[in-house]
């Protein structure tokens, strides 16, 4: 059975939960089983939040992520909370302007200036899509068409176009985004 567990973490207002829904829906659209769950505080904005996504070829028994294969971190607090849970051989993608990574054995860590790239694209609120696009390009856990369809279905009309723009620019055109890859490197905190 192929089961991939993801966690996306950050603050309320960064589109963390939305990103989880996008990837979960993309999984469904790609014909996989998928489940997405969230944890967030009572305040709607500004407090820590995270979402877990499970993608699987088979029916998902337990839908909550405990040890992710992949972590996307948009905040230092989130990184601190979840980085140590990532499975050995797993991958961490972090917003390199918001997170200073620690050194972790046998985890591949990739810094992505997602918020900065999003600002360059025209709206820093699409940092979540930038991060997903980069993650998908690096991991190929889902076909990119699934994420495109997911964005079309899930986005509010106001954000549909810029979300798609962010995705297409990031996946097809490395000219706009310049991820600082730090494969296998050990970074000191």
């Amino acid at each position: 059975m192929k089961r991939i567990d993801l966690i996306i973490c950050g603050f309320g207002g960064q589109g963390v939960i939305f990103a989880g829904e996008l990837i979960g829906r993309a999984g469904m659209l790609a014909g996989m089983e998928s489940a997405q769950s969230s944890a967030y505080g009572a305040e709607a904005r500004g407090s820590a939040c995270s979402t877990g996504v499970v993608l699987s070829d088979e029916p998902i028994d337990y839908p909550i992520v405990r040890q992710p294969d992949i972590l996307l971190a948009f905040s230092q607090d989130g990184y601190r909370a979840y980085a140590s849970l990532v499975k050995s051989g797993g991958q961490i993608f972090y917003d390199c302007d918001l997170v200073r990574p620690a050194s972790i054995d046998s985890i591949e860590q990739t810094g992505i200036p997602a918020t900065a790239e999003a600002a360059a694209i025209g709206n820093k609120n699409v940092a979540n899509v930038v991060m997903l696009a980069k993650m998908l390009a690096a991991t190929e856990i889902l076909p990119q068409e699934a994420l495109i369809k997911s964005i079309i279905e899930q986005s509010s009309p106001a954000y549909r176009e810029i979300n798609l723009k962010a995705l297409v620019l990031c996946q097809l055109c490395n000219v706009v985004c310049h991820p600082k890859r730090s494969e296998g490197s050990r970074l000191d905190e």
Partner: peptide, 9 residues
């Protein structure tokens, strides 16, 4: 709440 806030197909 676990199922109420869970997203699935």
């Amino acid at each position: 709440e676990s199922v109420g806030h869970l997203h699935e197909k």
